[in-house]
Nucleic acid binder design. Structure first.
Lengths: 88, 88
DNA sequence: GGAATAGTCAACCAATTGATTGACTATTTA
DNA sequence: TAAATAGTCAATCAATTGGTTGACTATTCC
């Protein structure tokens, strides 16, 4: 769903269409994504249009980036420690 | 668990210690993280030492980054379209 | 203005998850 | 060498999740 929403916004029905589940089930899933802050739903007449919420995905990326950053820091620290051993 | 492992590697028991659950439950959770590619477990004697697997977290970051990137691309496209309107 | 469409909600049930406990294996310590 | 420690696994049960169905509301179309 997220991948398809990255191409363009779409209604709940359009999002549900390729999925082998009922509209109600798809609606439920969309509700979970909305609750997680990954998408937004906007009412337009009888249609609800869904769109990605970049803030939610930025939060995920930033969260993961912190760990990648930590790892690199630890590798750097190891590198420095090894250099110090070499200088002795 | 991931946050604490970003500080230093630790055994299953040490990871489990601050959690209000049985050792078996914590072991289960660690198994899930391992299966997800986020951590690795290495046997050292009777101890299993856990460490972050940067590749797993890089994959998560990259996945989220793609969506942030898509979003920015769409904003850029909108920007260009609006400029074209202004030039008319 | 009624039929059709879009979507949600509650009730229900099956499947999965989350946690515990006891039993077990492997390793370390006294 | 036996006790202690570290950790896993299977069985069990409660809680949660995932999906369907029918009923409903809101909006659009004929």
């Amino acid at each position: 769903m997220l991948e398809r929403l990255s191409q363009c916004d779409m209604t709940v029905g359009a999002l549900a269409e390729p999925l082998e589940m009922s509209l109600a089930a798809a609606s439920k899933h969309i509700g979970v994504l909305e609750e997680a802050g990954l998408i937004r739903r906007q009412k337009r007449g009888r249609e609800r249009v869904c769109s990605l919420d970049p803030r939610g995905l930025e939060a995920v990326r930033d969260w993961a980036e912190r760990y990648v950053g930590f790892w690199n820091e630890r590798l750097d620290a190891l590198d420095r420690a090894l250099k110090e051993l070499d200088d002795e």
